[in-house]
Design a protein around this nucleic acid. Structure first.
Lengths: 271, 271
DNA sequence: CAAATAGTGTCTCTAAGACAATATCAC
DNA sequence: GTGATATTGTCTTAGAGACACTATTTG
């Protein structure tokens, strides 16, 4: 076995035991709610796509969309494919969140998951109207840190309410990993994946990357601020927000009129 | 197939095609060089462990230590195991860097790599004296961004000099991914993994987490500053560095004497 | 006009960069 | 004393939080 060619022809990769590999995706959307008065600006709601499992294990429980890695694609491509299959919508962006490989995480066997967070634009979902599948629903997200240091993840859709509790383990490289204290009825270790994805999304929103992903081409600064506040679960003074984002946006000559108050200038992302 | 138990007993995971999964580790160490004068403080050098491949493919080329994921372990445990097997040293810390899953990245077949960066303490390497294997060497690292925006990675050990050139692709979530323009004689896509690991290490050094990993229990602030400067490839004014880290360290009553100049107080990491 | 949002100016506080000045040891 | 590092003080600038104020529209 002297040349590389000979070596490779004698190399049988099937001789080694291998895990199954999946990509699971936390797909986020921000929905603009209806105005409560002709004057007021609408509120935003952060939503996460969950699938009701039709098969064992965890049948009838809610889980992240995902599926097995296929030959010839990268795990990122697999994540994109899975989310497109489920929503018929192409995500605006997708970012890696972590690898979940605890041996006992899936009762079917040795299955490791590559977790991604992705951003879906409200526009594209409205256009395709992919809201009809009963087994796929957008859940309203709440993710807060309580006094005892644990994180509470609440997902709500109509009368369904999933409440998970997580402990922030150690933080590595800006990202936090979470240990599930209560799964809240979510399948597998998906509560931990969702927490990590939200944590990643918030990190990515600090430099407004994730914020722009949720917004259309042009937008008002108030709309942008509301997206930022929705993702980060904070409130910001308008004057300060405007100053902070001024380097990231540029003016257009367009205005939004007919809102019952002073028209707002439309901006677009700079460069 | 009605109950979960029945489902699982009929579920044959082997029916699906699966990739091989590896963990590859960029293990970093900072070596304190000899003093050039009895007065002067020693310089630091950032080192990376590379293995000369004894088998095809890429035989005789240099590669990151790594190996296949085994049943019953997480990918992080696999990374730790691989680096311990190679150095007989337990890393101080390990952090995920990314998943590399391009279908063509390994000529042996469908193999995806989970990349990690890890920090090895100089002390532990000195103790075990694991420096004798000719096929495993610590290479001096240089990683800089040139005017044209490309990154130059240079690894040197005695008369061996590996020079890779990389383009910073898109940046996602604070981390950058790299595309290899010239591999510089590194095996597989390891030049891109090393660049991503260095990028992650620098990110982690911003809040001094990675810096403490390289330091012993107690240390002088000048030693800490030199580690920070070595990792980040910058130089900092001592007065400013001291102010910036003051919240992260606490004084001890110990001093380092006999260095040919004013003794320096020893500090330890706070909390 | 009233209600609501759009947008600007500015005070303060803090953090970081630059740099000057002092302190202390081994030889 | 000399050479080197250790350590402190302070000037300046940039950025963010707080808040007051003005501008503009629709019903």
């Amino acid at each position: 076995m002297d040349t590389e060619k000979e070596f490779l022809s004698n190399y049988h990769i099937e001789d080694y035991e291998r895990p199954s590999v999946t990509a699971d995706v936390a797909a986020f959307m921000i929905r603009t709610e209806d105005k409560t008065s002709y004057r007021k600006n609408p509120e935003n709601k952060l939503l996460l796509l969950l699938i009701r499992r039709g098969a064992h294990p965890f049948r009838d429980m809610w889980a992240l969309p995902g599926g097995f890695l296929q030959k010839g694609e990268t795990v990122e491509e697999c994540a994109l494919r899975e989310i497109e299959e489920e929503t018929t919508v192409k995500p605006v962006s997708i970012m890696p969140v972590g690898v979940f490989s605890e041996p006992e995480r899936d009762p079917r066997g040795w299955i490791i998951s590559n977790a991604y967070a992705s951003v879906i634009s409200e526009e594209s979902v409205k256009q395709t109207g992919c809201d009809d599948a009963a087994d796929a629903q957008w859940f309203a997200v709440s993710f807060t840190c309580s006094e005892d240091g644990n994180y509470h993840l609440t997902l709500e859709y109509e009368d369904i309410r999933l409440e998970a509790v997580l402990a922030a383990e150690k933080t590595c490289f800006g990202r936090t990993s979470f240990r599930i204290l209560e799964s809240g009825g979510l399948a597998f270790d998906h509560a931990a994946i969702i927490a990590a994805a939200l944590s990643a999304l918030r990190e990515e929103a600090k430099n407004y990357d994730a914020v722009f992903d949720f917004l259309p081409e042009t937008f008002t600064l108030t709309a942008m601020q509301k997206v930022q506040e929705t993702i980060m679960n904070v409130s910001i003074l308008p004057a300060n927000f405007r100053r902070m984002v001024s380097a990231y946006v540029e003016e257009t000559d367009e205005y939004v009129r007919g809102e019952g108050h002073r028209p707002a200038r439309l901006y677009k992302r700079k460069k």
